[in-house]
Nucleic acid binder design. Structure first.
Lengths: 124, 124
DNA sequence: CTAGAATATTACTTTTTAGTAACCCGAGCA
DNA sequence: TGCTCGGGTTACTAAAAAGTAATATTCTAG
């Protein structure tokens, strides 16, 4: 009798999008495809190694597509795959909940959310 | 100029429900309130220490209520708080996505999902 | 020919997270 | 007396995740 892998199905989801960075990466890729260097720029905290490692894992799980342009210096873009697109509503909900949570905890978004041109800092 | 805490709002969400166990705990509490010993039983992988630690953090974030009955031996129940209830749709989506992912990866749920009376193992 | 660009890899270290096992409490019970 | 119950804590250890820094590649610009 082989050992079952999951006790509850949410564990399968966590295996794919769990961890410190994957949801953040995917939230960015939700809006548009991005080059590696773009992602690094808009995610100030991440290291080269982590970024690429997480992207590769997402690629292996079929969540993102890796598009390589044959150039030098290299150009590689990552985009949400069709399958990854099935996470869109979840990712949106996670962002929205975070938004509301920040307001609840700190009164307003602007004081805690980096004004990097990516966040909607208007009151809601 | 103080340092902003988040680069993107999803980070705030992950701070509350990130990690290996919190979503799993919350998925169980979605259905009904549970005693500590119940949770330990339906989450075979978790240790006493982790369970209580995660529950306390969720309590501090206002996601779960801790209900203490003054008895010996002690009886303590945990339930989703009203605020925690705002995570319900997210938790449901995470479970459903995991369900579908398991089917996509392994063909059927029954082979990978523990038959513990909590999972719906019927085909969908 | 040397420097620099963008992507990626590697060896190594630190930090964080998680697990182990022993123990405490106070009532009941044999 | 001493053992059980359920809930919880503590000190310690192990494992996993993440960070650091150096290096590779391949073409172009100067």
């Amino acid at each position: 009798m082989i050992k079952k892998k999951y006790n509850i199905s949410v564990e399968a989801t966590l295996e794919v999008i769990g961890g410190k960075w994957k949801c953040v990466i995917l939230c960015h890729l939700m809006h548009c495809k991005r080059r590696t260097s773009d992602l690094k720029r808009i995610m100030p905290g991440i290291t080269q190694k982590m970024l690429i490692q997480q992207l590769r894992e997402l690629e292996q799980d079929g969540i993102v597509n890796r598009i390589v342009y044959n150039q030098a210096p290299p150009k590689v873009e990552y985009e949400l795959s069709e399958y990854g697109d099935s996470l869109r509503t979840i990712l949106n909900s996670l962002c929205n909940w975070g938004d509301a949570h920040i307001v609840r905890e700190y009164g307003d978004k602007a004081s805690m959310l980096e004004d990097n041109g990516l966040n909607d800092l208007s009151d809601s």
